[in-house]
Amino acid sequence: MNQSIKRTMAIFQKDYKDFTKNLYVSSMIFLPLFLAAFYGRMGVQSLDMVFMVFNLTLTVIAAFTQSALIAEEKEKNTLRGLMLSPAGTGEILIGKSLVSFLISAIVLIFSAFLIGYQPENALLIVAALFVSILFYLGIGTLLGLITRSVMEASVAILPVLLFFSFSSFAVQLSDEYPILKVAEYLPNSQLVDLGYAVQNGAGFGDGWAALLIITAWTIGVSALVVAVYQKKMVDK
């Protein structure tokens, strides 16, 4: 193993141990699981519901967990120690994202199982969810970096949570208010669109546009995260 991977893994292991003892954050994983089980038992099979649970999982687990982990490092003065350590920007950001990434992935799989969702083209959906997790991790990291404490981050995440969980419904109103057409290009709406397309038998050939848009969002957010991180490193 080279040094860079060793350092990244050190941060990951530390975060994993910390996360298991952090009830404030770890208890959050039950919210989407509960919703998924609830809708699954109710027999609601509308794709809108399935993807609302997915989008909620992504915001609550990926974005919220990540922002809380980063904000806590800032609040407890430990981020400075990491920044001054030999670990580079990439090593720290990846190491700090691994725990949230794994937990999001696990919760998504369980929610899909509990709600009884079986897509026609599982590979395409998995790819779209994978990129979406990265996007929401980016949003979470960004929020964690610009807020000063876990409390602030928890408040700042609320509008984000509402926005990304429910803006896919705004698309339905776009006939009445044309301006809402913009919402179609948000990563969460694209994910829902892709879900419908897959149900109607779409393959990679048809789904790539949606995948590309989500990827573009992810790259944009990641670039922003690196820029903000570098700036924080200079003025602390």
Binding site: R7, I11, K14, K17, N77, L82
Partner: peptide
């Protein structure tokens, strides 16, 4: 005013630094 990972044990914190600084 230095920070520590308050939820880790002393040993875990030291192991983390040991790995981070190789």
């Amino acid at each position: 005013e230095e920070g520590l990972y308050e939820r880790l044990t002393v040993k875990e914190q030291i192991t983390f630094w040991k790995k981070l600084h190789l």
